[in-house]
């Protein structure tokens, strides 16, 4: 029910605003809080078990999306101003172009990076991030503790972030 979610939103408004500010929202925080509410209300289908956690989740995703689009805008700008930049004026809005190229050249690198961490780490990461299986369930499936699952995910994420950082230098 919208009134229930709205009540929770209004009651925790200040807390959610602080969360956005800590996320680096700056002066846009109030606007972003409105965006959180719009997204949350739009996406809501049926009762929500933990409305506050849900609102935090929406806010967190919003800030991640915002970071991503700012970053892509910065890349486009760099390419525009870069004399040797390959981005042609008519094609600069083609969002998939860059990614497809990277995919073709680097998928093997990503696979190798994960494989090098060992089968359990790789499988844990794939189960969680590709299949969307919660960490607790993965722990049960593999017969390991939840902290092992977390540690495996940290290893995988760390290796992938490190790999990604080596590509940024071009």
């Amino acid at each position: 029910m919208a009134t229930g979610l709205e009540g929770v939103f209004l009651q925790h408004r200040a807390q959610l605003l602080r969360f956005l500010q800590s996320h680096g929202a700056g002066e846009a925080a109030e606007d972003l809080l409105q965006e959180v509410w719009l997204r949350a209300a739009r996406a809501q289908a049926g009762p929500i078990a933990q409305p506050l956690a849900y609102l935090y989740r929406v806010a967190n995703n919003l800030m991640l999306d915002r970071h991503r689009s700012q970053r892509q805008a910065a890349i486009r700008e760099r390419d525009w101003s870069d004399a040797t930049g390959a981005t042609a004026p008519g094609r600069s809005d083609e969002p998939a172009g860059e990614r497809v190229l990277i995919a073709r050249e680097t998928l093997a690198q990503v696979q190798a990076t994960l494989a090098a961490l060992g089968p359990r780490v790789e499988q844990t990461f794939r189960r969680h991030r590709l299949d969307g299986v919660p960490q607790r369930q993965i722990a049960e499936e593999l017969g390991v503790s939840i902290s092992t699952v977390e540690s495996d995910l940290r290893k995988a994420t760390s290796a992938l972030v490190k790999l990604r950082s080596t590509w940024d230098e071009g």
Binding site: R18, F19, Q21, S22, H23, G24, M63, L64, H67, R68, R71, R99, I102, A103, T106, L107, V110, Q111, L114, R126, R129, L130, T157, L160, V161, L163, R164, S165
Partner: peptide
Amino acid sequence: LAADPAHAAAYHAASAAEAEMVALL
């Protein structure tokens, strides 16, 4: 996040890099 403005930046960067790798996979 609030403890240091650089925390948010580090979190965003790590999340974005990881999400990109997941998209590739």
